[in-house]
Amino acid sequence: MNKAESSRPDLTHISSPPQKGLSRRRFLERIIFGVVGVVSAVLAIPIVGYTISPALKGASAQKTDLGPLDSFPVMQPTRVDFSVVRQDGWIRQETSSSAWVVRQADGSAVIFNPHCTHLGCAYNWYAADKLFRCPCHGGVFDIQGNVVSGPPPRPLDRLAYTIEGGRLIVTE
């Protein structure tokens, strides 16, 4: 047995005798768990924000120019086809869309969503009896979009618009 042998590190410190009050060991334990707890909480906030952020974003308003208002006949529904650039997360897609425009006598306009409010079929304008008719389940609407007969639960949906410099702009 030489000197070096006897100076082996002491491995018995773990089973130190019980102390009064807060032991050094208990104190360090609390510090460590406390710090880990705070760090975890601070990191949890960005992760939660990251996860829910797409849900918090409102639908981005799109402006679509449908042309001069004067080009639409008064009180005569006209179907307009146009393309919409849709931002789907990181994918930009150009999709075709359409709407029914009814130019009013007072210089305003009514723009209908082209889908029947029943189950989303495309309806058509029948000039002879002045009605919108949906071919799928027989939904019928008048020129104001009100339900005349059939299963639709509510009047036709209207699209928001503005008139800028005489041009009709759909804003949704």
């Binding site: 960005p46 992760i47 924000g49 990251y50 952020s53 797409p54 918090l56 997360g89 990181w90 994918i91």
Partner: peptide, 20 residues
């Protein structure tokens, strides 16, 4: 087609995306 754009989306459009 989408890898680069999806990362751009993380960096610019997702809250804390650039941090993560």
């Amino acid at each position: 087609d989408h890898a680069y754009d999806s990362i751009k989306y993380i960096m610019n459009d997702v809250a804390f995306g650039s941090l993560i």
